[in-house]
Each structure stands twice: as structure tokens, then as C-alpha cells.
């Protein structure tokens, strides 16, 4: 067991957890933040993407113990005072989601893209989303949503 102190969605969390706890399990099973999803076991689908110290990572491929002292943002931490983040708004406006399962990871990944590139081209968006698999949308409206968000952020 290891004690970790982290800041999650602006709140300090201090917990004693087994050494082998994955960040995704820590979020879902210990903190009940079930917005972060698990869609595969080979680190490819990207449904579990969260931000650690402002950068997107796959929470299924990181040990929580290893992130002691980090600032973590999950999909639950994006909306402020009941108002959704511009990326969330854009996904809604452009119908960038259907079943919603890949959506949290997709949104977190897309926000990281706009941190790196303010006005990405279609190709840059599609390339960036290599680590996020969606089976519903054919990606077209996701690309549209990212562009819409870029114009608003």
C-alpha cells in the first residue's frame, strides 16, 4: 500500500492505495469518477484519457502511485459552475458523439490538441486523434467539433 496525495478536479485527495492500482481504477473504483472509461486492455482505444499536469495521458497505462503530487483533470472536472467547457459545447453543437462511450477520452484528447495548436487543420486533428477510437461517428463530426471549439477558445 502507498499513500498518495493528488489534486483531482481542483480537490485535494489523499488516499492509501495498493501499489498496483492503475490511475483508471483509482478514478473509477476508488473515487467513483466513472466518466473515465475502459474500452480495451492494450492502451489503444483512448476512452480513458485524462489530463495529468495539463497533458493528456491514458489513465489505464499509468500507476496512480506514480502520480503522487500531480494535478489531474478528468471529464467531470471540465464544466465550471454548471457551464460546460467550450470543447464539450462544441461536441454537443456538432453532434460529435453518439453512444458517448469514447467521448470523455475524445474530449480530453482534443483539449490537449488545442493547447498545442490553436487552429489545427482537419489533417492535424485526424492525426492527433490516432489514440482515440470511436465506432459510432465516423469521426467527421468530432473533427467538426474540434474546429468549432478552436474558433471559440
Amino acid at each position: 500500500m502507498k499513500k498518495i496525495d493528488v489534486e483531482i478536479n481542483g480537490k485535494r485527495i489523499s488516499k492509501e492505495i495498493p501499489d498496483h492500482t492503475l490511475l483508471s481504477d483509482f478514478l473509477r473504483n476508488i473515487l467513483n469518477l466513472t466518466g473515465t472509461h475502459i474500452g480495451c486492455d492494450t492502451s489503444q482505444c483512448g476512452a480513458c484519457v485524462v489530463h495529468v499536469n495539463g497533458r493528456s495521458i491514458k489513465s489505464c497505462t499509468a500507476f496512480a502511485t506514480d502520480l503522487n503530487g500531480s494535478k489531474i483533470t478528468t471529464i467531470e472536472g471540465l464544466a465550471k459552475n454548471g457551464k460546460m467547457h467550450p470543447m464539450q459545447e462544441a461536441f454537443k453543437k456538432m453532434h460529435g458523439l453518439q453512444c458517448g462511450f469514447c467521448t470523455p477520452g475524445m474530449v480530453m484528447s482534443a483539449i490537449d490538441l488545442l493547447k498545442n495548436k490553436k487552429n489545427p487543420s482537419d489533417k492535424e486533428i485526424r492525426d492527433w486523434l490516432e489514440g482515440n477510437i470511436c465506432r459510432c461517428t465516423g469521426y467527421q463530426n468530432i473533427v467538426a467539433a474540434v474546429k468549432e471549439a478552436a474558433s471559440k477558445m
Binding site: 493528456s56 491514458k58 490516432e130 489514440g131 482515440n132
Partner: peptide, 9 residues
């Protein structure tokens, strides 16, 4: 290499 999340880690 990999995807952005792999590159971040």
C-alpha cells in the same frame, strides 16, 4: 511515435 498520449508519457 504512437499517439499523443504515448508521446506525453
Amino acid at each position: 511515435i504512437g499517439d499523443p498520449q504515448v508521446r506525453n508519457r
